[in-house]
Design a binder for these strands. Structure first.
Lengths: 110, 110
DNA sequence: CTGGATCCTAGACGATACTG
DNA sequence: CAGTATCGTCTAGGATCCAG
């Protein structure tokens, strides 16, 4: 990682996506399967509708997810990962793995 | 990743560490070598002394870094990664790699 | 069902001055 | 040199109500 030009550093692009309380969890949910708005609300306990929408819009703009609207009544909207979004899987695995290690080393048994 | 219990989810532990504008960069700097306070200020352009200190204290409490004080005048303090801190390297590599991919796919050639 | 509109709070971050 | 002490700013996130 180059320390000289932060704005151009690849790390900055990734942090822009994952530095959020919810985005990793949203992406993870979509990694399992496409999800509707109401389903995400159930999968992500405690997230508010407003924050969910904000993050979905953000991830859509960043080309991580795709918003699929069905012209029916009542409304039906599905969110799914783009190919670029799918490519984040190894990163999430790494985040999960290090968290497991961290937990086991700082909270030994019980 | 279990979606049922967020507070116990390993992902949460990792996000707790990296969800910050500066922490990943601080850890990355220490991944190269131990650093003094003034050196970190140079390596991390635009970070303020206050924010640097706050994050160093945080990382120390989380057992990611070690603060080494030399009883000399003028004061000399060095920060270095613990073994747990070193173990974060693959994660940072992954963050770097995905950022590279993201940049190349969203900003093709120039 | 999806999600827009408001209002509010906490906490991260930034700028500056001062100290052993 | 390595901080501490203040004060100000900014924004993600939370809570609630309303609408097509």
């Amino acid at each position: 990682m180059a320390n000289d030009n932060f704005n151009e550093c690849p790390v900055t692009y990734t942090l822009d996506i994952i530095n959020s309380r919810w985005r990793i969890f949203i992406i993870n949910a979509l990694l399992h399967d496409k999800q509707r708005n109401s389903e995400l609300l159930k999968l992500l306990p405690n997230i508010s509708q407003k924050v969910l929408t904000e993050n979905l819009r953000f991830l859509e703009e960043k080309k991580i997810i795709r918003r699929v609207v069905y012209p029916v009544m009542p409304p039906k909207v599905e969110y799914e990962l783009t190919e670029l979004g799918e490519s984040i899987r190894p990163l999430i695995n790494q985040i999960y793995e290090w968290g497991t290690k961290y937990k086991s080393e700082t909270q030994p048994e019980q």
